[in-house]
Amino acid sequence: MSIERDLTQLAGELPDGISEGVALGTGLADGFDLYPSPVGEVVVTFNVEGVSSLDLATDGYLERFAERHGRNLLRAEPPAQWGKHITEAMEAGSPGKLPVDLRSKTPFQARVLRIAASIPRGEVRPYGWLAREAERPGAARAVGSTMARNPIPLIIPCHRVVRSDGHLGEYSLGGPHNKWELLTHEGVEPARLVELADHHVRVQADPSTGVYCLPTCHVIRGSGEWNVADFTSTAAARSAGFRPCEVCRPG
């Protein structure tokens, strides 16, 4: 036996897990893990940039991800640096310290999603409000389709975005009943919103402060239900002498 031949035999196959680790580290694949949520078990995917998607953990989610993102998914632990923030972000309905990967979105879509992420827990905003905040006031429809294709629902809280007439509208994560469920979970009374929408109420004003707000804004909610005046448009509120709230910016 030659030493050279013995040395050759000190190599072998590539151990399991290395090529997967490389795929995750280069971003050629995303990692995924399962988490509980108010609407059932969800699959959260992530890569070096941040959390890339969230979906109901129903059959076919691996295939759905590959189809939408052109990358595979591997069972993984999220990066230690920010993985602990995933549960917090889902509970808060806001990314907070959690980085999000919106590279698959256009700059406008990413901007709209980031604005949606800033809507406070327990409040809702209409599509038109998002369009205005994104400095594209005419783009309410584009905002609607951006919300419908929000890659990270729950964490980017598109459940807090409602139709411009005040009705709850559609919800991508399992359907409108989940939107109702999530809003209830965070203290919004969806039935009250529907009632206001049925009465065409868009904004509410407080005569003691002279300010009008969107109905779920915490400023007007602090005024007590019997003290507020309902208006069917911002123009009507303004002509009655009220000024727009600086917190919810009702337009």
């Binding site: 013995d6 040395l7 035999q9 000190l10 072998g12 196959e13 151990p15 399991d16 897990g17 997967e20 680790g21 995750l24 580290g25 995303d30 990692g31 893990d33 992530f46 890569n47 070096v48 591997l74 069972r75 993984a76 632990e77 999220p78 990066p79 230690a80 640096q81």
Partner: peptide
């Protein structure tokens, strides 16, 4: 950079695979 990356979780039950040749410790 390890804490910045997702880490792969082995799905099979045989744990970390380590197909080390038998006399490698001596080598």
């Amino acid at each position: 950079n390890r804490s910045r990356r997702p880490t792969f979780v082995e799905m099979s039950d045989h744990g970390i695979s380590d197909p080390e040749p038998a006399d490698s410790a001596a080598w």
